[in-house]
Each structure stands twice: as structure tokens, then as C-alpha cells.
């Protein structure tokens, strides 16, 4: 501990730490706006800022492959899916006064309690721990690909089966009602696009490795 304290200090943050702190503030602020705004479409757009900020944090932690996967899958497809979902459920454009439910204050109390407990425990446990970011990147594509296909091949292939099950499940779920053909077709297209995006992303992941 004394050794760590001799080489690191709270009062002399490195450039990476300052960048992490600033991007982290933007990320956290965007997350707060995402869960509190009353305009539903704006919530999805602020979610883009949050997820993009997290991708930058991954880059600062030298996990570059995960950063680009985050940009491709989350910013690229999940947010588009959420926007599709908002449009297909006819979410109101503009301010909707009933975006939050009546138990907002109970939810705020629970969230504050969990934030206080988690931050206290985490800071208390890792007060004297530093990440050494010098040297080769810990998460470059070569390193990640090698470990993924040497040690994690079976879970990786099981994940393919899971994505196939999700594809079939989404189609079955949205194919049910025959009476309302119009709504069914729209929902089906959206769900198929959802799972197809996932499959595309996975194929891209396999191709990138």
C-alpha cells in the first residue's frame, strides 16, 4: 500500500484519469436525462450519448475491440430497435405527462440507497488499487480473438444457438394474431429486423475475429 501510495496520488491525476472523469460525467448526466426526461424519443437519443460515452471509456481502458462492438451493436442496432418500438407503439411526440409512475419517490429512495451502499463499498474496497495501463493493450482484437477462440469456444457456439432461439421466438411471438393483419405485419417486420440485426452483429463479430 505504501508502495502504491508512493507512485500514485489522488492530487496528481494522470491525463487518462482526467479524460475518464470528464467522459464519465457526460455519460452519467446523459443517463440521468434518459431516465427522467418526459419526451420518450429524447430518452432514446440520450441513451445514444450514454452508450457512446461508455464506448469511449472502454477505449480509455484499452479494451478497443469491446468499444467497437459496443458502437456496432448498442449504438447501431439496439437504439434503432428501441426507436422502432416507440414508433410502433404510437408513443406520443412531445411531452407526455404520465411518463413516470406514481411510485417515483419510492424508486428514488431505493436508487439513492443502492447508489450510496455500492459507492461506499466499492471505494472502501479498492481505495489503494491502481490499473496499470502502460504497455500493450489488454483488449486489442488479436488478444481478444485468441482468448475467445482458445478458451471460450464452447460458450461462443452455445451463444449462436441462443441467438437462433431468439430469432425463432421473436417470429413466433409476432406471428400470432391473424385478425389484425396490418399490425401483425408491422410488428413482425420489426421483430425480424431486431433479430436479424443481432445475427448480423454476431456475424460481423465472427468476421472481425
Amino acid at each position: 500500500m505504501t508502495l502504491a501510495a508512493a507512485t500514485h496520488g489522488f492530487l496528481s491525476p494522470t491525463g487518462v484519469e482526467i479524460a475518464f472523469l470528464l467522459v464519465g460525467l457526460v455519460t452519467f448526466g446523459a443517463a440521468l436525462v434518459t431516465v427522467t426526461t418526459r419526451q420518450l424519443v429524447h430518452a432514446a437519443l440520450w441513451l445514444v450519448v450514454t452508450l457512446g460515452g461508455l464506448a469511449v471509456e472502454y477505449l480509455l481502458l484499452t479494451a478497443e475491440f469491446i468499444a467497437w462492438v459496443q458502437v456496432l451493436i448498442y449504438v447501431g442496432s439496439v437504439v434503432v430497435l428501441l426507436l422502432f418500438g416507440l414508433m410502433l407503439t404510437r408513443a406520443p411526440i412531445g411531452r407526455s405527462p404520465d411518463a413516470d409512475s406514481g411510485n417515483r419517490w419510492a424508486a428514488l429512495a431505493v436508487a439513492l440507497a443502492s447508489a450510496a451502499a455500492l459507492v461506499w463499498v466499492v471505494v472502501d474496497a479498492f481505495r489503494t488499487t491502481w490499473i496499470d495501463l502502460d504497455g500493450a493493450a489488454a483488449g486489442s482484437t488479436a488478444v481478444t480473438g485468441a482468448s475467445l477462440f482458445q478458451n471460450w469456444v464452447l460458450p461462443f457456439e452455445a451463444l449462436s444457438v441462443l441467438l437462433l432461439a431468439a430469432l425463432v421466438g421473436a417470429i413466433v411471438l409476432s406471428r400470432k394474431a391473424k385478425a389484425k393483419a396490418n399490425a401483425a405485419t408491422a410488428a413482425e417486420t420489426a421483430a425480424e429486423a431486431a433479430v436479424k440485426d443481432t445475427k448480423d452483429a454476431k456475424a460481423g463479430k465472427e468476421g472481425a475475429l
Binding site: L21, F28, V35, E57, A111, V122, F126, T129, W130
Partner: peptide, 22 residues
């Protein structure tokens, strides 16, 4: 980098998501 920075940011984001879910 101090390990507390990502850990605290992660805890705060988790609590934000918890508030949103509730």
C-alpha cells in the same frame, strides 16, 4: 488509473438504471 473511477461510475449507472426500471 485508479480502479475506483470505473467502479464508482459503474455503481452510479446501475443505480440510475434501477431508478428508471422502478
Amino acid at each position: 488509473m485508479h480502479l475506483a473511477y470505473p467502479a464508482v461510475l459503474s455503481a452510479l449507472l446501475f443505480s440510475t438504471g434501477l431508478y428508471g426500471v422502478l
